[in-house]
Design a protein around this nucleic acid. Structure first.
Lengths: 199, 199
DNA sequence: CGGAAGATAGCACGACTGTGCTATAAAAAA
DNA sequence: TTTTTTATAGCACAGTCGTGCTATCTTCCG
């Protein structure tokens, strides 16, 4: 096996170990030692792949983005703009356990990014990417009927707001409700206003 | 001066010192020592008011809620439902520096609440309160035209989403934009759909 | 005045932290 | 084979952490 590939794969596994620690005990518990133990490695062994803790955390945060982008890239962008946008946006919501956990980890990183410049860069990049996506989708769905900028920001806010709610109140903000709210928002975007949809 | 009042006031001052530390360096830096230094007190002196760090943080988080509720309580609830709701909801957005800082501190607490049961209680309480408020306002504005439950959740998502955006991208999500998005959302709530408003 | 109660200060302990460093085991290259 | 790189392990240092504890100082009450 080529060693480079192994090294990258190893880093990914360590990132996942970091995710597990963050999910279970919070980002403040994601110390070098704790992550190493979670991965079944020794202290120094982890530091052979990430020479500093900051490097590990930055990688782990970017890895979350890559995972999400991977899922989005696997979606079929063909067909009716409205249906396509709905498919992509629903993919972004934490509707199953995997995405719920991902969402929790992501929020932990986002919160630290408010104070850590290295993580902030990643947070801002993904913020801008999602905002651009919202703009495109709004334009595709109802570009001729609405002010795209404002509606893009509003859609963006709905998405991130729903993610926060799913994290802080999973018993209340269930997958059902998240989906319902997003679909309703898209319905009201294009002047369709509460049309009955066949689901 | 009665001593009880002093003690309460002292705790409030310590909470504010904690806020400053959290705002500047993040919640993970809000150690007993750091907060005490920020307040100009000694280690043991702080621990005379809060016998444990957890107690301090819970108090500081609840104090944020009290401050917000205080501002909301000072608003005049009379008049046109739509205008009243807009006034209250705009009060919740981080439109000036004071509320921006408050918002950052609040988000830090919310993030830790995902992992800390004591803080979680406070987060859930305020989540439920805001959700109930959204329900009332939606009902007052357009209760006869929409499904209140879904619309309340949607409004709630917009508010929290905007708060997150103001925190993670203050240069992009400016006060202007936040206000614009919220007003637009309220406009589209009652079937008014982009009516020109006199501001 | 004396004494009790409260406030402030600060030390001590054991635990955990990031990281520099060295030593051993494995693998790859020569 | 020998040599050289790489991986893994783990110790050591200096620092911070929460908290228990005692000692001083202030204030107030009787």
């Amino acid at each position: 096996m080529p060693k480079i590939v192994d090294a990258v794969e190893r880093r990914r596994q360590l990132a996942e170990a970091a995710w597990r620690v963050i999910l279970r005990d919070g980002l403040e518990q994601a110390s070098v030692r704790n992550v190493a133990r979670e991965a079944g490695l020794s202290n120094g062994s982890l530091r052979h792949m990430f020479s500093t803790q900051a490097e590990l955390l930055v990688f782990a945060m970017n890895q979350v983005v890559e995972r999400i982008e991977g899922r989005l890239g696997a979606l079929d962008p063909a067909g009716d703009p409205r249906a396509t946008a709905e498919r992509f946006l629903l993919e972004l919501l934490p509707l199953d356990k995997e995405r719920q956990e991902e969402n929790l980890v992501w929020l932990a990183f986002t919160a630290r990014a408010l104070v850590d410049p290295e993580l902030r860069e990643c947070a801002e990049r993904s913020y801008d990417a999602l905002r651009a996506g919202c703009r495109r989708w709004v334009a595709a769905i109802a570009g001729d009927q609405v002010e795209v900028e404002v509606e893009a920001d509003r859609l963006h806010a709905v998405i991130d707001g729903l993610a926060v709610h799913a994290a802080t109140r999973p018993e209340v903000a269930t997958a059902e409700k998240l989906r319902e709210v997003l679909v309703r928002h898209l319905d009201t975007l294009g002047g369709l206003r509460y049309r009955v949809r066949n689901r």
